[in-house]
Simulated scan of single mutants.
Amino acid sequence: MNTIAKHENELTDPSDLKRRSLLQLAAGLAASTTAIQTTAAISSPVAPAATGKPGDFHFLSGTWKIKHRRLKDKEWDIFEGEASVIEILGGVASIEELRIPARNFSGMGLRLLDTERKLWADYWVNGNNGILTPPPSLGSFVNGIGTWESEDKDGEQAILVRGVWDQITSNSCRWYQTISRDQGQSWQENWVMHWQRT
């Protein structure tokens, strides 16, 4: 979900479009984006650990209620959402439909495992336009904690974005995001999602 950083403004964009069935669309995207995922460059200054394996995102399959806390204009915005996640292709693909009904927002996280490189690619699709947003962030799990880092820009300033999955149990987990404006010397938390299975 690190790609939420690139699309956080979409949560407040008004839209009269009907929400697409992203889970049906995702099966086609999973097959059609293999070449993109395989050739994606690692943009993080520190290469992720090559420990990815099929089923790493099995813990996320199911339906969830999510409590969000997002830093916006130096204030914490607190809101609720929900998600449905499925695992396909023998555990090498995980598809998440994220919904924020109160804000008329939906999006899809598409995670694909490059089984040769042992790295997970994390993509984002905005429900308003259905466009897959490359390049993905690459990462993997080490000792039960998943970390993805990528380069991005905040206006003209180069930043690093880190997304982390942790506190994983059978019924809950946490995803949080931090950004660095000084090439990784310090990090600021700007998004936290507490997931609770329904």
Rank of each mutant, 00 (worst) to 15 (best):
E156L: 10
Q177A: 14
G130D: 13
E8Q: 14
E156V: 03
Y123V: 11
Q177K: 12
I168D: 00
V164K: 05
R117C: 11
L89F: 05
K6H: 12
R111N: 15
T133F: 02
W148K: 00
A50K: 09
N143W: 00
G55T: 06
N128P: 05
I4C: 05
F141R: 08
L22H: 05
D56R: 09
G107W: 05
H58N: 12
L98F: 09
T133C: 07
M108T: 06
S15R: 09
K72L: 12
T169G: 07
G55V: 06
E87H: 05
V125L: 13
N9V: 13
G81I: 06
Q177W: 07
Y176R: 14
L29A: 08
G52H: 01
W120V: 06
R69F: 03
R103D: 09
A121P: 09
F57Q: 07
T39Y: 00
A26C: 10
Q37K: 09
N129D: 15
F141K: 09
G127E: 01
K74C: 02
L138I: 02
R69H: 03
S170H: 08
I4D: 11
G155S: 01
Q157S: 12
A40P: 02
S186Y: 14
N126F: 05
E151N: 01
F79C: 08
Y176F: 15
P135V: 03
L160A: 01
A49Q: 10
A41H: 01
V161Q: 02
T133Q: 04
D122Q: 11
S84V: 07
I78N: 11
I131A: 10
V125M: 11
Q37L: 03
V192K: 15
T169K: 11
W165G: 01
W64S: 04
N9W: 13
R19H: 08
M1P: 10
P14H: 04
G155R: 06
S43E: 08
D154N: 14
R70K: 09
I145E: 15
S140D: 03
S150A: 03
G55K: 03
L160G: 00
R69S: 11
I78M: 13
D13I: 15
T39A: 02
D182Y: 08
G62I: 06
T147K: 12
A83S: 14
P135G: 05
T3C: 00
A121T: 07
S94P: 10
R99P: 01
G62N: 02
R117V: 07
K6C: 09
I88W: 05
K72F: 12
V85Q: 06
N190D: 10
Q196R: 14
C173S: 15
L119Q: 09
G28P: 01
Q167E: 14
Q177C: 11
S172V: 06
L22Y: 02
L160D: 01
